[in-house]
């Protein structure tokens, strides 16, 4: 603060409150809609204050879903999303930390080739190789499975770079001390590197969990069996009814439940989240 300007501070507060309101608006409206009965929208206007059907609507979606549309209960989709998000987060971190360890702590022929192969994945997001990747997964018989949902997404150049960066800043003395004490590479990795990169792992986990949870295109492609639907990809299928207005109160209840888990992660682990976000982009 260079000088005290009460008026500007007031202005800043006003702008921020407006910003917070705009940012919160969609979720608030969705929440309000999800607490009303289906008929409350017939009058043509969404109410602005929560109704009294919160427990009822959420209970119905969690336990049975909208049976007429052939959708599984939301609890099932939440479970699928959770498994996929965890598998992606854990998978990405494990294979990336191992490859970063190999690239930093060993010299071997074709080391740079391996490094560049990993780098290239940055230039090949799923979106640009949709059809052939789908074919590979189909040929491997991985459609409608948790393996198919997660494994093709767990290669990660960003995570590998991050761990490489972390390992490069580890003092050489640690390695030397470990070697003098007779520790082999894997022992060094397990007992020294892993504990020292704990915070990085946690920060990355938060980011990757959200990334995994929010996947849309991939689950949409490879799940045709409704019991494998993830919640983020499932909502659209629920809102897509051909000849009628969707049951908005139930769709919105599902949207809220789809957004809630990553939301809790971000708000609850804000510090790790911010750290992970900044680190993965460096």
């Amino acid at each position: 603060m260079v000088e005290n300007r009460p008026f500007l501070n007031l202005l800043a507060h006003l702008v921020l409150m407006l910003g917070v309101a705009i940012v919160a608006l969609p979720l608030w409206i969705a929440f309000v809609a999800s607490t009303h009965g289906g008929n409350d929208f017939m009058s043509g206007l969404v109410p602005l204050w929560p109704g009294d059907r919160l427990v009822e609507n959420y209970g119905q979606m969690l336990s049975s879903g909208v049976s007429t549309s052939g959708m599984p209960p939301v609890s099932r989709m939440l479970l699928n999303s959770l498994v996929m998000a965890l598998a992606i987060a854990i998978g990405k971190i494990s294979i990336s930390i191992l490859s970063a360890f190999a690239v930093v702590y060993f010299r071997f022929p074709f080391r740079m080739l391996a490094f560049w192969t990993i780098f290239v994945t940055l230039m090949l997001p799923v979106e640009v190789r949709i059809v052939p990747t789908y074919k590979v997964v189909a040929d491997l018989g991985m459609l409608n499975s948790y393996a198919g949902l997660s494994i093709p997404l767990i290669a990660s150049a960003t995570a590998t770079f991050l761990f490489r960066q972390v390992f490069l800043t580890m003092p050489d003395e640690l390695t030397e001390a470990a070697r003098i004490d007779g520790a082999g590479p894997m022992k060094f990795f397990r007992d020294i590197l892993l504990p020292l990169s704990r915070t990085n792992i946690a920060a990355l986990f938060v980011i990757m969990f959200i990334y995994g949870w929010n996947q849309y295109l991939w689950p949409l492609l490879i799940t045709t069996d409704s019991s494998m639907y993830t919640i983020v990809a499932g909502i659209k299928r629920m809102a897509d009814v051909s000849d009628a207005q969707p049951q908005w109160h139930l769709v919105m209840a599902t949207a809220i439940m789809a957004a809630l888990p990553p939301l809790l992660v971000v708000v609850g682990m804000q510090r790790l989240f911010i750290r992970g976000l900044v680190e993965t982009e460096k």
Partner: peptide, 9 residues
């Protein structure tokens, strides 16, 4: 927190 909300949602 909007970061946590999937683009599709």
């Amino acid at each position: 927190w909007p970061y946590a909300v999937a683009p599709a949602v």
